[in-house]
């Protein structure tokens, strides 16, 4: 049987995912996730012992860039989409230290 998804699990995951769910959305999310996990349970029929997890499709060999500066100053372009800026910086709500 798949993992049982509780409302607490959904609350915890929404903290990780930085999503704010209404009580209805939380209940909906619980149901959805339960259904999906029950479904993916199917994978446990498959014996994967000793199979190396496939993190990359091809043997690329080393892919590097050389240590040379290629980028020009582009502050205006980088900041152009920011919702709030000040003095050439991104402005965010106070971070608590």
């Amino acid at each position: 049987m798949a993992e049982t998804i509780t409302l607490e699990t959904i609350d915890y995951v929404s903290i990780l995912a930085k999503l704010k769910l209404t009580p209805e959305e939380t209940e909906q999310a619980r149901g959805d996730m339960q259904k999906l996990l029950d479904y993916v349970e199917k994978l446990n029929e498959l014996d994967t012992d000793g199979v190396e997890p496939m993190t990359h499709l091809f043997p690329y060999g080393n892919v590097f860039r050389e240590d040379t500066v290629t980028n020009q100053e582009a502050r205006t372009e980088m900041l152009a989409n920011a919702p709030k800026t000040k003095d050439g910086q991104y402005l965010v709500p106070k971070t608590i230290e």
């Binding site: 995951v13 999503l19 999310a29 959805d32 199979v51 190396e52 997890p53 496939m54 993190t55």
Partner: peptide
């Protein structure tokens, strides 16, 4: 949001092996 929630869950502590690695092995 549904997929972000599912993805965050399957990578979270205690589930990584059972779900994510299992899926990568199946992929192989």
């Amino acid at each position: 949001k549904r997929r972000i929630m599912l993805g965050s869950f399957v990578l979270s502590a205690g589930y990584y092996d059972a779900y994510y690695l299992k899926a990568l092995r199946t992929r192989a």
